[in-house]
Amino acid sequence: MLLAFGSAAAYGTNIVTTQIASQAGLSGSLVVFYRVFLMLALVGAGALLWRFSLAVPRTERRAVALFGLASALVGLAYLSSVAYLPVSVAAVVFYTYPVLIVLAEPLLTPAPFRPDRLAVALVAFIGVALVVGPDLHGLDPRGLVLALLASVAAAAQFFTAAASPGTLLPAKLFWSHLIILPVAAMVLSLTGGFLPPQALALAPLAVVVTIGGYLVGFLTQLMALARVAPGPAGLAFCAEPVFAVSIAAIVLGERLGSLQYAGGALVVAALMINVILEQKRRAPVPA
C-alpha cells in the first residue's frame, strides 16, 4: 500500500509539472513521448549492463501485451478527451476506475465481492469529484466516451499487471513501453507537436520532475501490484488528484475552496478506512 501511495504521489506531482512545461511551450503529448522513450532506453540499457532477463513466460505473454495496450490507451484516450471536455470533467470521469476495479474484481479474480470496499470506493470517488470541482458546462458525448474509455483502460492496467506474476519487473517495463512508444508517437504526429530533444530545455526543471515522476510512478505502481490485489491498490490511487491539487496550491499558488478541502478529507478518510480493512483481513486469526 505504501508503494501504491508513493506511485499516486509521483503521478500527482507529474500532473502539476506537466502544466508548468506546457506553459513554456511543451505540449503534454511531447513530454509523454520523451518520457516513454527514456523509460524504454533506461530499461534496455539496464538489461544490457546488469543482464536482466527480458523474457516473458509463454503463459503470461498475453497479459503483458494487454497491459501494454491498456497503458497506451489510458494516455491516448485521456489526452484526447480534454479536447472535447473541461479538464475537471475528464478527470472526474477518469477517476471512476477505482470503482470499476472494485466491481470487476470478483468477476476477474478469486476475490469475493466486498460491499465495504465498494462503499469506500464510492466515498473516495465523491471526494475526488469535490477536489477536482467539475465544470458541467460544454459536455460533449465524444469527450465523455473517451474519458470513460481511459477509465476502463486504467482498470484493465491493474488486472493485467497482476495477471503476470512470473514476469520480472524489467521485462514488464520494457515490453509495455515498447507497445506504448508507437502509440505516443502516433498521438504526437497527429497533434503536430514534435520538437527535438533540445526543446526540453525550455523548462528543464519541470521536464526533469515530470519525467522523473512518471518513471517513479510507473515503477512503484508495478511493484505495488506485485504485492497488493487490484481492489485495494486501485483505491490508493484516488489520492493522486489530492496530491496534484495540494502541490498545485503550494507550487503554483492556486487557491483551494472549502469544497476541495472537504473532498480531500473524504478521500483521506476513505483511504485510511481502506488500509484498516486490509490490515484486518490480513491479520492472523487467533487459535
Rank of each mutant, 00 (worst) to 15 (best):
L54W: 14
G213I: 07
G193A: 14
A269R: 11
P230V: 00
S71Q: 07
V102N: 05
R62P: 09
L271C: 10
V216A: 14
L181D: 04
S22G: 14
P112I: 06
I101K: 09
A226M: 08
A124T: 10
L108V: 05
L144F: 04
A244L: 13
A262H: 10
V89D: 03
A287P: 14
V242K: 02
F5T: 11
R35S: 00
G127P: 12
P86W: 10
F33V: 03
F158S: 04
L136V: 14
Y261T: 12
T167V: 10
A8M: 08
L107P: 06
L54S: 05
V152R: 02
S189W: 14
R62V: 12
L215T: 07
F67H: 11
G192S: 14
A121K: 05
D135I: 12
P284R: 01
V152H: 03
S88N: 09
A161N: 02
P134W: 15
A41G: 12
A270M: 08
A206L: 08
G133C: 08
Y11T: 10
M186E: 06
H177Y: 06
A244F: 13
T18N: 06
L259I: 08
A201W: 15
R255Q: 07
A162R: 02
A269N: 03
L252K: 15
F94H: 02
L107Y: 08
L205C: 09
A185R: 07
F159Y: 09
L108Q: 02
L38A: 08
A185H: 15
L139R: 08
L190Y: 11
G28F: 05
A24R: 12
L168E: 10
T18L: 11
L42K: 04
Q279T: 15
L69I: 13
G28Q: 03
F159D: 01
G253D: 02
V56K: 02
L49H: 09
F158V: 09
R142A: 15
N274T: 09
P141I: 03
P197F: 10
A153V: 02
R142T: 10
Y95C: 03
F94G: 01
V251G: 11
A239N: 03
A206H: 02
A4D: 14
A206R: 00
T191R: 12
G193S: 14
P115W: 15
P284A: 03
A171W: 00
A224D: 05
A8V: 09
A111M: 08
H177K: 02
P232A: 09
R58Y: 14
V207L: 05
S176P: 10
Y34G: 00
A104Q: 00
V251P: 08
Y34K: 07
M186S: 07
V131M: 10
A269D: 15
A70V: 07
G68N: 01
V216I: 09
S80T: 05
P286H: 11
T160V: 13
A229N: 07
G28W: 06
V268S: 03
V56F: 04
Q198I: 15
F218P: 09
G133M: 12
L252D: 06
L48Q: 07
G166P: 09
A162H: 05
G28S: 06
R35V: 03
A150Y: 10
L40A: 10
R255N: 07
T167H: 00
V92A: 08
S27E: 15
L66A: 05
V267A: 03
L235A: 01
L2C: 13
N274W: 08
V128M: 12
L48W: 13
A155S: 11
G264E: 00
V93H: 00
Y34V: 05
Y34H: 01
S176W: 09
V187K: 12
L148A: 04
